[in-house]
Amino acid sequence: MVHNKISSPSFLEEVEAESGEKVRICYQCGKCSAGCPVGYAMDLLPNQVMRLVQLGLKDEVLSCATIWLCASCETCATRCPREIEIVKVMDVLRRRSSAEGYPSAVREVPIFVNSFIGNLKRFGRLYEAAFVGTYNILSGHLTKDFDKVPAMLSKHKLSLLPPRIKGISRIREIIKRVEEIEKK
């Protein structure tokens, strides 16, 4: 497996340095995968992601869906017998994947992120109704979560009017600065 694929010899070290976690000490017991609540939807289980990082199989791991599906719930890290903060590793992998231009293995993730940031830029604080609308139209899941609208409205969890806040321009500045940092 390792021989006929291009493995990046420094990938493990890079991920370890960036995450501050020792991925190499993972001994593949599988407890992370056993308890992962999103494991059913993943293409690779968490332990397999760790293994690919150990082997330096960068392309495989940075183009997998798992890193985008991970909910950062920390169940894996809480139970890991080697005390590896797997969530931090997942974070690094997501960053690397997007920075190096790997196409997202889950189509909805960039749509979600872009809708979210666009919404923030426009309103300065999340305007849920508009955000859900934009996401549903762009993703094609037109009626997604519509059934929950009446309940949320009645409990004042959802407002039909946009939020009004002062200093929207400063929020935009923050986002702009982050985007500039990311470009570097």
């Binding site: 599988g30 995968s33 056993a34 017998p81």
Partner: peptide, 23 residues
Amino acid sequence: GRVSRIFEKNGTVFVKGSDTLSG
């Protein structure tokens, strides 16, 4: 694979584990 959790639901014991060989 190591077991993540063992819990009881309506009198039944569930064992949540993984088989890393089949993923």
